[in-house]
Simulated assay, not measured.
Amino acid sequence: MHDDAAVTAEVTDDLRRVIADAGITENVDLVARILVTGVGLGLDEANRLDLKITTAALTEMRAAFRLFAPYEDVPKVTIFGSARTLPDHHVYRAAAEVARALAESGWMVVTGAGPGIMQAAAEGAGPDRSLGVSIRLPFEEKPNAVIAANARNVAMKYFFTRKLMLVKESHGFVCVPGGFGTLDELFELLTLQQTGKAEPTPIVLLDEPGGTFWRGLQRFVDEQLVAGRVISPGDFDRVLVTDSVDAAAREITDFWRNYDSLRWVGDRLVLRLRAEPTDAEVESLNERFGAHLMSGRIERRGPLRRELEDDDRVELPRLVLRLNQVHVGDLHRLIRAINDLGSAPKGPARAA
């Protein structure tokens, strides 16, 4: 085995020359770290399987990044659901309708590119508003006709790289009834939100009219997880359970009505908004959420120095606070309160 520091000292200069010869000028330090890690795996004498996993993961991520890159500024919603749902099922039609509604509002729809609910969502959005991230399996998963028509699909060997891309690019999520895969994707979303490892986003559990699939999950959460004290009572509040297509689409778009984005600068959380709140509105937020702060108050102010240096959405008004990390899951409630302020823009918006 070899120490990473020794690897860096031995090969970084040579790798930087390779990078320069390739004509790479942006993010050279990060590209060098990727190459140094690859050399390190060789010096560690990693076995062939480990190297194949690493190679495939990087290759697949590069392909996915290239697929999504042209649509960087277009808001995206990922729709999860069963590959086995037939076109005559109510939830198939619901998935198509919510995808159509969001596409008409300027969103792109991301799916797993397979049959069933994935095809329903792609049909609803249409080929020009659909992106697919498929999985290579001996059954079920081949790009559906809508995705294949525009070749807007990337195929993955590993579920972990596929799930990364289904989540990374999206500003909202709609789950319709499905099996292990759908539930796996939902619970990963909830875990990322609960732990603060992902920025807050709206999550909708959409059922057929009068359906009980997600209500059954909600009862399980209340009666087993909350009652058993393995999650907090409000952890499921960030999820909308509904059988209304209109309510589902509105939940996605309204989440971005006033709230734009967030950034941590040291221990300070910066919330960027579309409309500047009044003094009275900031005071009302302090009254409701002051107990969740580590210290101080929620303050209205301009961009912080680090944001100015990075030219990071400096044109937007801001709220700055020191949030107690224990309460990071409560960000959803704060964002919804910000969206409900009287100064917030009327009507739905989207994230940029």
Rank of each mutant, 00 (worst) to 15 (best):
T212K: 10
G42W: 09
P277S: 08
E299L: 12
D88V: 04
P127K: 01
S170H: 06
S295K: 06
T195C: 08
I147Q: 09
V110L: 13
M61Y: 06
D243K: 00
I53V: 14
E104W: 03
E26C: 05
A69R: 01
E199H: 04
L323Y: 04
R313I: 06
E45C: 11
R62G: 01
F159T: 03
G296K: 01
K142Y: 05
E10S: 13
L316R: 13
D73H: 11
F220I: 02
I19Y: 10
V230R: 10
V7S: 12
T8S: 13
I117M: 02
P202V: 03
M165P: 00
A96Y: 03
D340R: 05
G266Q: 06
V245S: 04
T212W: 05
L308R: 07
A122Y: 01
N324F: 03
G216M: 08
A9V: 08
L186C: 02
K157D: 15
A275D: 13
D222K: 03
E72S: 12
I231W: 07
R318K: 05
S295D: 15
N286R: 00
K346R: 04
T85G: 04
L131Y: 04
T195G: 09
A46D: 12
L285Y: 02
F173R: 01
A247V: 08
D254K: 00
W107S: 06
Y259E: 14
G228K: 04
D207N: 13
I203A: 09
L189M: 13
S130E: 11
D4E: 13
A151E: 15
M61Q: 10
D207P: 03
D246L: 09
E10A: 15
P277T: 05
A56R: 07
P303S: 11
G216Q: 07
Q194L: 12
V239T: 09
I252M: 14
L58Q: 10
R93I: 00
F236N: 09
V7F: 05
K197N: 05
R268V: 12
A22W: 08
A249R: 01
T253I: 09
D13G: 09
R263Q: 07
K163S: 04
P70D: 13
E309T: 06
L164H: 04
R322W: 12
H90F: 03
G126V: 01
M61R: 04
I135Y: 08
E283D: 15
A349M: 08
R229M: 13
G302S: 11
N339S: 09
Y71E: 12
A101G: 05
A69D: 14
D330N: 10
F220V: 03
T78D: 15
A56F: 01
A198P: 00
S295C: 10
E60M: 11
N339T: 08
A99K: 01
D340N: 11
L166F: 09
H2D: 14
A148L: 15
V270H: 01
R62K: 03
K52E: 15
D330E: 15
D3T: 07
A22D: 14
V31N: 12
D311G: 11
D3P: 00
G196Y: 02
E276S: 12
G112W: 09
P138H: 06
R268P: 00
E104Q: 12
L51Y: 03
E169K: 02
Y71P: 02
E169T: 09
D279E: 15
